[in-house]
Simulated scan of single mutants.
Amino acid sequence: MAEHVDLTVETHVMGSRTTLTVVRAEQCEALAALHIAHVAVIDACAPYAVVRTNLSGAFLQVCLDGAGQTLLDGRWYAHRPGVASFSPAHALHAFHCVPRKRWRTAWVRFMPTSPRSVHGALAPSMMRFDGTVLEHAILGLSQEVATGNDPGTCAVWVDVIDRYATRLLDPLQREPRLVLVWNAVAGDLARDWSLKELARLASTSEEHLRRLCQKSLGRSPGRQLATMRIARAAHLLATTGEKVEAIAREVGYANSFAFSNTFKRLTGLRPSDFRAHPRRHEDPSGLH
Rank of each mutant, 00 (worst) to 15 (best):
F257S: 14
I161F: 02
G66L: 04
S117D: 01
P88I: 00
D65K: 05
G148R: 05
H38V: 00
N255R: 09
A37I: 00
A33W: 03
F86T: 08
E245W: 06
T70Q: 02
A84F: 03
L209G: 14
Y164G: 00
L237V: 04
S216P: 02
L287K: 15
A233N: 12
H35Q: 12
Q214R: 14
H38W: 06
N261M: 12
A165E: 03
L31A: 09
L55R: 07
M126P: 09
G152H: 10
V98K: 03
R167V: 00
R232Y: 08
S87W: 04
H12K: 03
C154S: 12
H79V: 02
C28V: 07
L201E: 13
R104E: 07
S142T: 10
S114R: 05
S194P: 12
A78V: 00
L55C: 09
C63N: 15
S260A: 11
V83M: 05
E282A: 15
N183R: 15
P47V: 00
P284R: 13
T19P: 05
A146R: 15
D43I: 02
A165F: 03
P176C: 02
V179N: 08
V133H: 07
D150A: 13
L20V: 15
L225M: 09
K243D: 09
E282C: 10
L180F: 10
H12I: 01
Y48M: 12
S114W: 03
G68C: 00
D150H: 11
R52W: 01
H12E: 15
H281L: 12
I138F: 04
S285N: 10
T147E: 09
A155F: 03
T240Q: 11
E175M: 01
V179Q: 11
E10V: 15
L64H: 12
Q214T: 12
M1I: 07
V181C: 04
T21D: 07
H35W: 03
R249M: 07
L287N: 14
L60V: 11
H96C: 14
N255C: 12
S125I: 06
Q214L: 12
D150L: 02
Q143F: 05
Y164I: 01
L237E: 06
T240N: 13
G241L: 02
V181K: 02
L212V: 10
L225A: 10
C45L: 03
D150P: 01
D130V: 11
G57T: 10
H38P: 00
L178R: 04
W182E: 04
H277W: 06
H208E: 15
R177K: 09
A231I: 04
L266M: 14
D273Q: 13
M111K: 10
C213H: 06
R275M: 02
L168T: 02
S142C: 04
P88E: 00
A32G: 09
V62P: 09
T18K: 08
S285L: 11
E3C: 07
M127H: 11
F259S: 04
L60Q: 10
H235R: 07
V83K: 01
N183K: 13
G222P: 08
R167Q: 10
V22A: 05
L34W: 03
A137G: 14
G268K: 11
G140V: 07
H208W: 10
T105H: 07
R75M: 09
N149L: 01
A246P: 13
P221C: 10
H208Q: 14
D43Q: 07
T132N: 05
G57L: 01
A165S: 11
A49L: 01
D43S: 13
C63A: 15
